[in-house]
Structure formats: C-alpha cells, structure tokens
C-alpha cells in the first residue's frame, strides 16, 4: 500500500515537472548580463571619476564607489523602484553590491511597524545575514589556508 502510494506520488511529480511552465533561462541571462553590466559600468565610471577628479587613491576610490552605489540602491528601494528593476533583471541586480543594499533596506522598511528594536533591529539582516555568515566564514578559511601556504 505504501509502495503503491509512493509510486503514485512519483508519477504525479513527473507529470508536474513535465507540464510546469519553465523559466526563459536564455533570455533571462541576457537581461541579467545587461543590467548587471550596466551597474558595473556605473561603478567603474564613479571609480574613475573619484581617481581623476577627486584625487583619491585606488583604495579610497573603491570605498567611495561602494558608498555611492549603496546610497543609490537604498534610495531606489525606498522609492519602490529597485524591486521593479529586480523583477526585470533577476540576478543582474541581486549580485552587485546594490542588491546587497536592497536586501537590507527592504526588510528594514517592512518591519518598521514592529518597532526599532524587535522590528528593524531584529530583521535587518534576515536576508543578508546568511550571506554575511557564510561570506565571512569562507574568507576566514581562505585567509587561514593562505597563511599556511605562505608560512
């Protein structure tokens, strides 16, 4: 009886997979490439401006670029525009630093009504949190490995 049920489930799942509307992966990749690329071009433009016109050194220019991009993304999120860009661009607007800014501002806006501490404070990193945890962990491991190899 149990096996029969499993067999029935398996058949149904196959049917679902066969029938379900699929994502247009190729088209989506093109969109992501264009929007992601455009964000990077803007970043590069800011970076060059910072070096040429503001006389910043390379490190300072990178920091400046990050700050400006984060500011723009946060503002666009607040104005309700970034989610529309995201719907169009997919990973193209998620992967750059602007996507990270969006993932922090969005929950902050959403949880404002639950108060500053348990609302914004507790939920600020609900989406960015896992990225930070594993990003930092990975960088620590890489750092240790590099240390060992060099030593």
């Amino acid at each position: 009886m149990n096996d029969l049920r499993k067999e029935e489930q398996r058949r149904y799942q196959n049917k679902v997979n066969e029938r379900m509307p699929k994502s247009e992966t190729a088209l989506q990749c093109v969109k992501a490439f264009c929007v992601g690329g455009l964000i990077c071009v803007i970043g590069q433009f800011l970076n060059d401006c910072a070096i040429v016109h503001m006389g910043l050194d390379k490190d300072m220019a990178s920091t400046f670029t990050c700050i400006v991009l984060i500011f723009i993304a946060a503002t666009l999120t607040g104005l309700g525009i970034y989610d529309k860009i995201g719907r169009f661009a997919g990973a193209g607007s998620v992967v750059p630093i602007t996507g990270f800014a969006n993932s922090i501002v969005a929950p902050a806006m959403e949880h404002r009504v639950e108060g500053y501490v348990m609302g914004i404070g507790a939920n600020l990193f609900t989406i960015a949190g896992p990225v930070l945890v594993y990003g930092i962990s990975a960088s620590v491991i890489c750092g240790l490995i590099t240390c060992l190899i060099i030593a």
Binding site: Y82, D83, R87, A89, G90, S93, I127
Partner: peptide
C-alpha cells in the same frame, strides 16, 4: 520576502 526586495518570481 519583503515587498521591496528586488527578486524574481
């Protein structure tokens, strides 16, 4: 996800 998150469905 939060409404303003720029993700695709």
């Amino acid at each position: 996800l939060p409404l303003e998150m720029g993700s695709q469905s």
